[in-house]
Design a protein around this nucleic acid. Structure first.
Length: 585
RNA sequence: GGUGCGUUAGUUCAGUCUGGUUAGAAUACAUGCCUGUCACGCAUGGGGUCACGGGGUCGAGCUCCGUAUGCACCGCCA
């Protein structure tokens, strides 16, 4: 046995015991006549003392950072305590000190506040994972999957694995593909989600399924998007949308209770997609704060000499409470912010409500105080408030711009606190979206999503107006999960494929397996998938999901530690019959 | 496919606006001193292809163009 105790568990009550610890040298402090060694493992840090008189003194002074050591000695009370760490009252007076392994000087110091940048941390991720903050994220992730399994198991869900090598489907994200050696010229695809497989499990009568499962999407990365990521994938039979929302709202509450000690009271608010877009300009509104949009188009008639609003199809405002003291410079910063190419607004109109109730705005020259007072009333603005207005000739685009402005103001006003959580359901998503690129309607969620019963007649007359039994769970402006009731009627499914522009042959070719299964008695079913990485990030207050993934990819989809992806040997390529010539080395 | 910001010591950064002697700091590392440190302290020392290529200039870390690469974002992500 290499150790009898860990480096995090010894306390004053253990004084007098002889123990053996093993771990990494965090650092040594040589005082001349004595040397302190901080030994670290994943449980904590314990101080070891070696005095000059000890035969171990020479070894102790030779130790370098990150050497692996084994120490035996008596637990003693420290004469001067360290109140910063749990083991700070005790130390080990070493009687044995063995070097289990030496270490090169690490490229960055293993400390909570790392001095390594992202790229270096990824290159030496195994060292980065020795750092407490990163390790804690993985610990939290572990506890979360344990709690998910506990909750779902208690409700009778079965965890069932589905294959990683499946067929490619052109709908949705790009697939990662895997060539098949035994079937030359043919390819598997890695699942973007086990969507159709879990629906088949419902046909099989599995009733309540879940899986904590890797999913793969060959799309560009973001701070919250990795090419492989983990879903908590769930499906239930004989349920309504209401049943599903209840079940998974329960799971969210369970996770908050067990992992954050937060009791979420009452049912989660539900917001129709159309309202989310109208009041927040987003299908994932951050509801930690208000500042809802107010439409102002009818208020601002054409004014001589002022052309900004002339072509506006949409004029919308938000009211920033108590921000009337914003300086000209701050307003200019906001204007620059909305004019950035990523946002693309033309400009910003502002109005301050003065202490006496009068409104001082950037459009004073063009609108009477009467109109401005109506504005103030419409915005429900009080003295001291700042009204910000955007306009544009494309209502949807302008709402998105206003959404960015709202989030920016929320951040500036400190209203986006990482320890405040505001959850809601966004429901009644539109069934279809028009794709300019494809020149056809595309499924907003996926082609198996059930339309709302009352909208089914519209499928024939006005498909773009059809809403779906689809829902997202949103927390603090992050989509943490989403799902839908699925179609279980083959005829309705056929109709959906037709609207989506599938020929019968193509629908059969790509989804024939599912359509055939549905001919043998598909139960009504629906489900949801949570993004595990996003949940962990949210609970840990992370800016990027990378920090809760042991070995993530960088912005370009590369694993800089493994140096993957990489070219293959010609022999491997030849076996796969890909007719690719390997690059010369 | 696009936009923005970056790339200088092992590491984190300053220096770039306003080109001009030997490119600095902190930290890490090495050596020495120190018996109560815990961000130990003190002293000394080593450590640089200023990402790469090109232009312009008497002269470039600094200016211009291109490339690579990192991060954030837009497009994309059923």
């Amino acid at each position: 046995m290499y150790r009898t105790k860990t480096c995090g568990e010894l306390r004053l009550a253990d004084a007098g015991q002889t123990v053996t610890l093993a771990g990494w040298v965090q650092r040594t402090r040589k005082m001349g006549g004595m040397t302190f060694i901080d030994v670290r493992d994943r449980y904590g840090i314990t101080q070891v003392v070696v005095e000059e008189a000890s035969p171990l003194f020479e070894v102790a002074n030779r130790l370098g950072r990150e050497w692996v050591v084994q120490v035996t000695g008596a637990v003693g009370e420290r004469s001067s305590k360290n109140t910063h760490i749990p083991t700070g009252d005790i130390e080990i007076l070493a009687t044995e000190l063995r070097v289990l392994n030496e270490s090169q000087t690490p490229p960055f110091t293993i400390e909570d506040q790392s001095d390594g940048g992202d790229d270096l941390r990824m290159r030496y991720r195994y060292l980065d994972l020795r750092r407490t903050p990163v390790r804690r994220n993985l610990e939290l992730r572990h506890r979360m999957t344990m709690e998910v399994r506990r909750y779902l198991d208690s409700l009778g869900f079965l965890e069932i694995e589905t294959p990683m090598l499946i067929g490619s489907t052109p709908e949705g994200a790009r697939d990662f593909v895997v060539p098949s050696r035994m079937n030359p010229g043919q390819f598997y695809a890695l699942p973007q989600s086990p969507q159709t497989l879990k629906q088949l499990l419902m046909v099989s009568g599995m009733d309540r399924y879940f899986q904590i499962v890797k999913c793969f999407r060959d799309e560009d990365l973001r701070a919250d998007r990795q090419p492989e990521f983990t879903q908590i994938d769930c499906e239930m039979s004989f349920v309504t949308q209401e049943d599903i929302l209840q079940t998974f709202e329960g799971m969210a509450k369970h996770l908050f209770r067990e992992l954050r000690g937060i009791e979420l009271e009452g049912a989660f608010p539900r917001m129709m997609w159309a309202d989310a877009m109208k009041y927040y300009g987003s299908d994932k509104p951050d509801t930690r704060f208000g500042m809802r949009f107010v439409e102002l188009k009818d208020l601002f008639a054409q004014a001589p000499g002022f052309t900004v609003f002339d072509d506006a199809k949409y004029i919308g405002g938000i009211c920033a409470t108590g921000q009337a003291a914003y300086t000209r410079k701050q307003i200019d910063q906001l204007t620059d912010f909305v004019k950035r190419p990523q946002i693309g607004a033309k400009g910003l109109v502002y109005a301050r409500v003065q202490d006496d109730g009068s409104v001082k705005s950037s459009v004073d020259k063009f609108y009477t105080q009467e109109v401005l007072q109506q504005l103030r009333q419409r915005m429900d603005a009080q003295p001291g408030d700042l009204i910000l207005i955007l306009s544009g000739d494309d209502a949807m685009r302008t709402r998105k711009q206003l959404c960015e402005l709202r989030l920016e103001m929320g951040a500036r006003m400190g209203l986006r606190d990482k320890n405040t959580f505001s959850l809601l359901w966004v429901i009644d998503f539109p069934m279809f979206e028009w794709s300019e690129e494809e020149g056809r309607l595309m499924a907003t969620h996926h082609p198996f999503t059930h339309p709302k019963d009352e909208d089914i007649p519209l499928l024939d007359t006005d498909p773009a107006a059809v809403r779906a039994d689809a829902y997202d769970m949103v927390c603090n402006g992050v989509e943490v999960g989403g799902g839908s009731i699925r179609i279980h009627d083959p005829e309705l499914q056929d109709k959906m494929f037709r609207i989506l522009g599938f020929t019968e042959e193509r629908a059969q070719e790509q989804f024939g397996f599912l359509m055939n299964a549905f001919k043998y008695g598909a139960p009504p079913h629906g489900g949801l998938a949570y993004g595990l990485d996003r949940w962990v990030s949210l609970f840990a207050g992370l800016d990027s999901i990378r920090d809760c993934i042991a070995f993530p990819k960088n912005n370009s989809g590369r694993d800089v530690m493994l140096d993957a992806p990489a070219a293959l040997e010609q022999k491997q390529l030849d076996e796969l019959c890909l007719n690719i010539v390997a690059p010369q080395k």
